[in-house]
Nucleic acid binder design. Structure first.
Length: 120
DNA sequence: CAGGTGACCTCTG
DNA sequence: GCAGAGGCCACCT
């Protein structure tokens, strides 16, 4: 007997899947992730998923940034430096706690595929 | 039940 | 660049 819930996986697991889909070397914002999970406006829920994420969750949490490309943690804190370190390890440039989204943004990557920009 | 909080976002000035 | 307001909603007091 099917129920409608079979087609309504809980939001948090969908969000987790989206985060796992962020390519290495790319970053995505909370709002972007929520939107891609079919949950526009639910950026805060993405934050909760990451907060609840456990070590064994295997989520690339370091690839999630704020909408302006800044790391969500307070500068100079341990988590902040850890995220910055992990990003650098993937070749993502972090300057003053900020990433150039035009260079490493996931959405930008999609645009690159669809638009097939000419070499400059 | 009401109020505050939070790994957030967008708009306005 | 910064500040305020409104939106979002799960979770805790």
């Amino acid at each position: 007997m099917m129920s409608v819930d079979d087609d309504a996986p809980d939001a948090q697991s969908v969000i987790a899947d989206v985060i796992r889909a962020i390519p290495r070397g790319c970053v995505a914002s909370y709002g972007e992730i929520a939107a891609r999970a079919g949950l526009p406006g639910r950026a805060r829920l993405v934050g909760k998923v990451l907060r609840d994420a456990r070590a064994g969750a295997r989520l690339p949490w370091h690839r999630v940034l704020r909408a302006d490309g800044r790391i969500a943690f307070e500068p100079r804190t341990a988590p902040f430096r850890e995220q910055q370190r992990r990003l650098a390890a993937e070749g993502v440039v972090v300057v003053k706690g900020r990433v150039d989204l035009a260079r490493h943004g996931w959405q930008r990557d999609l645009d690159a595929e669809l638009w097939a920009p000419p070499p400059f």
